Amino acid sequence: MADINPSAENARAMLTESLGRLRKGSDEYFSLLEKALSSSPLPIADQAKQFCNFMQRNVTATFDLGDKLTQARDVQDALKMQSEFFQDQMRALTDQAKNMGETAMKAVTGAFTPKI
């Protein structure tokens, strides 16, 4: 049976390794998704690409939080990191919603513009 070392350093190393694999898988997924959207003839492909870019930024920020949490010194440090992450994500969500709203308005305005 494998020797299990429950030390904090061993747990950190395992978490860091797992986060690295997850990050790599996520990067590959978004790369494939971007290629698929780039070759799409659909009229909403640009909006879908923008939405996917937002998703990718959010996923990356979550992985970054995971990396930081593996280095937390104590619970208070971890809570501070989570609080900062939440505030940053709320700002990002607000910006993303604004951008998506502007894009949607441009698309709607363009759809009702007479074509000569």
Results as ranks from 00 to 15, higher is better:
Ile4Val: 12
Ser7Phe: 06
Asn10Ile: 13
Arg12Ser: 02
Arg12Glu: 02
Ala13His: 08
Ala13Met: 04
Thr16Gly: 08
Gly20Cys: 00
Arg21Lys: 13
Arg21Tyr: 06
Ser26Lys: 03
Asp27Tyr: 06
Tyr29Val: 01
Phe30Tyr: 08
Leu33Cys: 14
Glu34Ala: 14
Lys35Val: 01
Lys35Arg: 14
Ser38Thr: 03
Pro41Gln: 07
Pro43Lys: 00
Ile44Met: 04
Ala45Gly: 01
Ala45Leu: 00
Asp46Cys: 00
Asp46Ile: 00
Gln47Thr: 10
Cys52Asn: 15
Cys52Asp: 15
Cys52Trp: 12
Gln56Asp: 05
Arg57Asn: 07
Asn58Ala: 12
Thr60Ile: 03
Asp67Arg: 11
Lys68Glu: 09
Gln71Ser: 06
Ala72Val: 01
Asp74Ala: 02
Val75Tyr: 11
Gln76Tyr: 12
Asp77Gln: 10
Asp77Arg: 12
Leu79Thr: 02
Lys80Asp: 04
Lys80Asn: 07
Ser83Leu: 03
Phe85Glu: 00
Phe86Trp: 10
Gln87Ile: 12
Asp88Val: 01
Met90Leu: 12
Leu93Met: 05
Thr94Arg: 14
Gln96Val: 04
Gly101Ile: 06
Gly101Ser: 12
Glu102Gln: 10
Glu102Asn: 14
Glu102Cys: 06
Val108Glu: 07
Thr109Gly: 05
Gly110Glu: 00
Ala111Trp: 04
Thr113Asn: 08
Lys115Ser: 06
